[in-house]
Design a protein around this nucleic acid. Sequence first.
DNA 1: AAATTTTAAGGTTAATCTAAGGTAGGGGAT
DNA 2: ATCCCCTACCTTAGATTAACCTTAAAATTT
Lengths: 224, 224
Amino acid sequence: MKLLYAEDEVSLSEAVVDVLKYHKYIVDAVYNGEDALLYAQSVQYDGIILDIMMPKMDGLEVLQRLRSSGCKTPILLLTARSEVEDQIQGLDLGADDYIAKPFSMNLLLARVRAMLRRREEFTPNILRCGNISLNQRSYELSGNGRAFVLPKLEYRLMELFMLNQGIYLSTEEILVKVWGYDTEAEPGSVWVYISYLRKRLSALNADIMIAAKRNVGYMLEVLQ
Amino acid sequence: MKLLYAEDEVSLSEAVVDVLKYHKYIVDAVYNGEDALLYAQSVQYDGIILDIMMPKMDGLEVLQRLRSSGCKTPILLLTARSEVEDQIQGLDLGADDYIAKPFSMNLLLARVRAMLRRREEFTPNILRCGNISLNQRSYELSGNGRAFVLPKLEYRLMELFMLNQGIYLSTEEILVKVWGYDTEAEPGSVWVYISYLRKRLSALNADIMIAAKRNVGYMLEVLQ
DNA sequence: AAATTTTAAGGTTAATCTAAGGTAGGGGAT
DNA sequence: ATCCCCTACCTTAGATTAACCTTAAAATTT
């Protein structure tokens, strides 16, 4: 499960990120509203945690912009105890839940679980293409009775391909969506990971392949 | 957003309708081609999802009748994985996109969003001229049941012609728009690429050609 | 220390460019 | 009108380039 956590207090942010990672979430942390919006628009998260008070752009505005651009990802707001009207406005703008600050880690974890569970009830967690399926919870890539548990980057890359069947994704697009908006990784990394995935697909006797189109990008393709 | 979903497998239909409704779409479900046509002609939908294999009237016929009666609503086809020629025929008949079965809900949602978004932005995904269509996602140039996946520059050139039907484009204009403002390529490159495209069009038995007008430029022209 | 990610290096090839020889439109001289 | 010539355009095939592929080893994280 991939989360985005936007919070300007760095020490709090680091503590929360540690706890979330300990509980097996993949977390991207940002420290202002602008970055929150950029990240949320370029990476497909399972949930977003937004502090309301943030520099550059406040959480409510990020929420509003995301919702108006069609983003359906569940969003959990963090509000100061006193700002009751912010909480109400947040729900009106399309937030899924809110927590008043200060909060306990257990409360946060419970709310995050609830937020993701609500979504899971309605969204399938197995992506398929050809005779291959990708489990979005366990990161298992399987086919013909065999399976691999994919490392994080291989998983994200495979998921990106599964969600964009029939569309060429350029190396730069992949870099942004898998490695993150401000990564310093180079195109070579994408090539290496494509090569890893191809090896896995061939080990599973997949009837799909990652097709490359020079100067354009990559796409999942069903054989024959 | 109001959708029509035509699918004869009731259990699949119910599952898909649930997911679509959860994502705030208003959905009418029908279970055969005749009903699909009736509903589509009496209600103004934002998008139509048509299974090809259906009782009473197949999806391709529904598509054809809707388009010939002037219906411009975006249509997404569901095809069995194997029936590649159905996909191409569907595009020839005026479908906006297709998904191969079986598909994941996420993929369906992504394509529905894309279909509706395109409608909003007035940018269709399939460009057409005569009996030839150009898929902007897959770079496929197709017609009469055959197709090529075009290299990038050939694709961009063909796209430019499709987007400028009835207008002569000069060699210099083409150089700037396809090769880029600061290219060092020479006019000869344009000639070479025009020649490549002509060869492809003739291999597809196209009823269009790239007409040249000396000292003026080039234009797509429908024969007779 | 085990797993994952990044870097580096050498090989491969599709896409693009170049060059060269051919075709044909159109203006001017007859 | 007709011919001639110039040059814009056409086509092909081969050379070239850099985008991509793979592997392995180094660095980093867990």
